[in-house]
């Protein structure tokens, strides 16, 4: 059966089904992270002492990762804009850059985690590190999910460009919405965990 309203908009919603679907999914994602932000606030206001993030964590590494993730959001939106301008080669370049930047983020995160774990500072070490590992771990899983989807769209999934270019462009837009959301979460996680 054909999936309806992949390109043309549904008259009652004014949206393609995929776009509405991803926004509803992102709403549920907001609530997922909100539950953890809420837990963080509760743990923090309820504790007698709370360390400064910059004393416990590596700020330069996280600063570098923030730059990397914001850059990947720009390359993602440029990948979509390239398809809109009918420039497929540029699309491949920009989406490829997005994937590479996402991998760089994970590698840096790996070194951060390794540093803590080698020093015996796992999640059970302190409440601060417990919430740090939980939140950045969940965020990291989202990065991994984005890499998998984007790599599919960059590689085998791009065949759709030849047969249904508009539908493929919509797919990139939707994957982009998810990716920008992951960037947005990090924009809040970075100061909250590392700088305050």
């Amino acid at each position: 059966m054909e999936i309806p309203y992949t390109v043309e908009v549904r008259p009652d919603t004014g949206l393609s089904n995929g776009k509405l679907g991803v926004w509803l999914f992102l709403s549920s994602e907001v609530m997922l992270f909100a539950a953890l932000f809420s837990s963080y606030i509760l743990l923090r206001v309820g504790s007698t002492e709370w360390p400064h993030g910059y004393e416990e964590l590596n700020v330069p590494m996280a600063f570098f990762n923030t730059i990397v993730l914001i850059s990947s959001s720009v390359t993602m939106v440029m990948a979509w804009a390239s398809l809109k301008m009918n420039e497929f080669a540029k699309f491949k370049l920009y989406l490829g850059a997005t994937i590479v930047l996402a991998l760089v983020f994970l590698v840096v995160k790996y070194f951060e985690y390794e540093h803590h774990l080698v020093a015996g500072e796992g999640p059970s070490h302190s409440t601060f590190l417990a919430i740090y590992f939980t939140m950045t771990g969940l965020h990291g899983l989202h990065i991994l999910g984005g890499i998998i989807v984007n790599t599919y769209l960059w590689g085998p999934g791009n065949k759709m460009w030849k047969t249904e270019p508009e539908r493929f462009t919509n797919r990139i837009e939707i994957a982009g919405l998810y990716w920008h959301f992951v960037d947005l979460v990090w924009i809040f996680l970075f100061p909250m965990l590392y700088l305050l």
């Binding site: 919603t13 709403s27 909100a34």
Partner: peptide
Amino acid sequence: ERKLIYYSLALTAVFFAFLMIIPL
């Protein structure tokens, strides 16, 4: 963006605000 997306996000924002206010 289309109104429907703003409506669903407004609803999300209300619940989000609740979750932030409760621990405070």
